[in-house]
Simulated scan of single mutants.
Amino acid sequence: MVAGEPSGDLLAAAVISGLREQAGNLPIAGIGGPRMEAQGFDTWYPMSKLAVFGYVEALRHYREIVGIRNAARDRWLASPPSVFVGVDAPDFNFGLEESLRTQGIPTVHFVSPSIWAWRGERIHKIKRAVSHMLVMLPFEEKIYQDAGIPVTYVGHPLASTIPRDPDRAAARARLGLSDSDRVLALMPGSRRGELRHLVPRFLEAARLLRQRDPALKVLVPMVNAERQAQFDALAATLPQRVDVQCVAGGTHDILAACDAALVASGTATLETALFKRPMVIAYAVSRLSWWLMKNKGYLPWYGLPNVLANQFVVPELMQDAATPQALAEQTWRALTDDAQAESLRQRFTIMHDDLRRDTAVLAAQAILATAQAKA
Rank of each mutant, 00 (worst) to 15 (best):
Q245F: 12
Q245V: 13
Q245T: 09
Q245P: 04
Q245M: 11
C246Y: 12
C246G: 13
C246F: 07
C246P: 15
C246R: 10
V247M: 08
V247H: 14
V247S: 10
A248E: 15
A248M: 11
A248Y: 14
A248F: 14
A248C: 10
G249Y: 11
G249W: 07
G249S: 15
G249E: 06
G249F: 03
G249V: 04
G250V: 14
G250D: 15
G250A: 15
T251K: 15
T251N: 07
T251D: 00
T251Y: 01
T251C: 03
H252V: 05
H252R: 12
H252D: 15
H252I: 08
H252T: 01
H252K: 14
H252E: 09
D253T: 14
D253V: 06
D253G: 10
I254Y: 11
I254A: 05
I254Q: 02
I254V: 15
I254N: 03
I254R: 03
I254M: 11
L255I: 06
A256W: 05
A256S: 15
A257N: 06
C258A: 08
C258M: 12
C258I: 09
C258V: 11
D259Y: 13
D259G: 11
D259W: 15
A260L: 11
A260W: 13
A260M: 07
A260I: 13
A260D: 12
A260T: 06
A260E: 10
A260H: 07
A261F: 10
A261E: 09
A261N: 08
L262K: 04
L262T: 04
L262A: 05
L262P: 02
L262W: 02
L262G: 03
L262Q: 05
L262V: 07
L262I: 08
V263T: 14
V263K: 01
V263A: 11
A264Y: 00
A264E: 01
A264W: 03
A264N: 02
A264G: 00
A264K: 00
A264T: 13
S265G: 10
S265M: 06
S265V: 07
S265F: 06
S265N: 08
G266V: 03
G266D: 01
G266M: 00
G266F: 03
T267H: 02
T267P: 05
T267Q: 04
A268S: 12
A268D: 00
A268F: 01
A268R: 00
A268H: 00
A268P: 09
T269E: 01
T269S: 06
T269F: 04
T269Q: 01
T269V: 01
E271Y: 04
E271R: 09
T272E: 01
T272P: 02
T272A: 10
T272Q: 02
T272D: 01
A273P: 02
A273R: 00
A273C: 05
A273W: 15
A273Q: 06
A273Y: 06
L274A: 08
L274N: 03
L274S: 04
F275D: 00
F275E: 00
F275Y: 13
F275V: 08
F275M: 11
F275Q: 05
F275G: 00
F275W: 13
F275K: 02
F275S: 01
K276H: 11
K276Q: 08
R277F: 15
R277G: 07
R277P: 13
R277H: 07
R277L: 13
P278F: 15
P278T: 12
P278L: 14
M279E: 07
M279Y: 04
M279K: 08
